[in-house]
Write a protein that binds this DNA or RNA. Structure first.
Lengths: 204, 204
DNA sequence: CAATGATTTGACCAACTGGTCAAACTCACG
DNA sequence: CGTGAGTTTGACCAGTTGGTCAAATCATTG
C-alpha cells in the first residue's frame, strides 16, 4: 500500500476507479454477493493490484459507506426551522427524490444493508442518525403544535418521505417494468408534491 | 430424491422445515449470502440430507418465491370494483401493512430480489404483475374520473402504497432503532389511514 | 420378522474466493 | 540515463461452498 504521503496521480485515479466500480458491484449484488475480482475487473485492475490500494474487501465497503452516509443525510439536515414549514417539507421531498434519480446506486447500496439487518451500519444509525431524527422530528412537532402544518406522527412522516422517494431507486427494476415506456421520474415529483400538500396543508 | 409418489409423513415435515429455514436465511442474507449448510442446520438437517429433498440451493429459492408471489399479490387482487372507493383503498393499505407486520421475512426476501435488479423475478413481474397492475390502475382511474376519489397518478398511487407499507418490514432494522421503545406498528395504521384519507377524499 | 424402499450421513471433490508475496515492471526526478 | 520509490502481476494458499456418492440406518408393510 502507498505510504502516508500525498497521493500520486496514479493513486488518485485508481482509488477513484475502484470506489466507482465497487459502488456498481456492491449496489447490485450486496456485500457477500460481490467478489473482489469482479470489482477489480470493473475498475480495470487485477485483483492483487486492487488489494494494493485497499487492504481488504471490507475496507472498500467501509470507505464507500462513510462517504455515502454524509451526503445521504444532507437533505434532511437542510430542513430549515426558519423557513415556511410546508414549503420546507415539500422541498425536502423533492431533494430526496432528486437523489434517488441521480444516485440510485447509493440508495440501493444503503437499502441492501438495511434490508439485511444493517449489520455494518447499526452503530451509525443508533448514534448520528438517531440524533438528527430526534431533532427534526421535534421541529416537525413544533410546526404541528403551532398549527402551521397538519398533525401527523413526526417520525412516521419522515419514514414515509424516505420510503416514497427511495422506492424509485430501490425498486427501480419493478417500477420501470410496470411503467413501460413512461419514465417514472416524469410524474413522481408532481405525485409526491400533491400527496404531501394534501396531507399537510392545515385544515380549518 | 423421493420418487413421484404421494409425499410421506417425513417428506412433508422436512420439506416444510427446509422452506421455513430457507425463508429465514435467504431473507436476512440474500441468495448469494446464504449457504446451503446454514439452511440445513437451521432446519435441523445435514447438508446432504437437505439436498436429498431439494436438488439445489436454487431449487429451494425458486419454490419459496413461487409460493411467495401468490400470497403477496392477494391483497391487491381483493381490491373490489363494487366497493366504496376510498374505503376499498384504505382497506387495501391496512391489509398490506398487516402483511408487513405478520410476514416481514417474505417482504424482505422480495425486497432483496428487487433491489438487486430482480434477476430471478423479471419474468413474473413483466407478465402476471403487469396485468394485475394495469387492471387495478384502470379501476383507480375510473374512480377518479367519476369523482369518487381525488385525482392522482394511479400507478404512482399503487407504488406509494407498496412503498409505505413494506417499508416497515424491509427497513425494520432502521425503523425500530429510531423509534426506540415505541412499536412502529402502533402508530403506523393510523398514520397511513390519515395520509390516504387526506390524499384521496374528494374535494369540492 | 423379513425385506424393500425411504432416509441419513461421513467422506469427498471441484470451483470459487479473499488475501499474500516475491519478482518484475514503470515512472518521476536528479 | 540511472535509480529508487511506486505500481503491477503470476503463482500460490487456505478456507468456504455447492454438490455427489456409496454405505449405513430407519420405517413400513406384507
Amino acid at each position: 500500500m502507498p505510504a502516508d504521503r500525498a497521493p500520486t496521480r496514479i493513486q488518485k485515479k485508481n482509488r477513484a476507479a475502484i470506489l466507482e466500480a465497487a459502488l456498481d458491484v456492491f449496489s447490485s449484488h450486496g456485500f457477500r454477493g460481490s467478489t473482489v475480482d469482479r470489482i477489480a475487473k470493473a475498475a480495470g485492475l487485477s485483483k492483487p493490484n486492487l488489494l494494493y490500494y485497499f487492504s481488504s474487501k471490507e475496507a472498500i465497503f467501509n470507505e464507500l459507506m462513510a462517504g455515502l452516509l454524509d451526503t445521504w443525510l444532507d437533505p434532511l439536515r437542510a430542513l430549515d426551522p426558519e423557513g415556511d414549514p410546508l414549503e420546507e417539507i415539500l422541498a425536502y421531498v423533492q431533494r430526496k427524490l432528486q437523489m434517488s434519480r441521480d444516485y440510485p446506486r447509493e440508495s440501493r447500496l444503503y437499502a441492501n444493508e438495511i434490508v439485511q439487518g444493517a449489520p455494518r451500519l447499526h452503530d451509525v444509525i443508533a448514534t448520528d442518525l438517531t440524533v438528527l431524527v430526534e431533532e427534526k422530528a421535534q421541529l416537525l412537532q413544533d410546526w404541528m403544535d403551532t398549527g402551521r402544518i397538519n398533525r401527523a406522527h413526526p417520525k412516521h412522516l419522515l419514514f414515509s418521505i424516505w420510503s416514497l422517494t427511495q422506492h424509485y431507486a430501490d425498486f427501480d427494476a419493478q417500477v420501470r417494468t410496470l411503467m413501460g415506456a413512461e419514465d417514472p421520474f416524469d410524474a413522481a415529483p408532481d405525485y409526491l408534491e400533491t400527496l404531501y400538500r394534501r396531507m399537510l396543508t392545515p385544515e380549518s
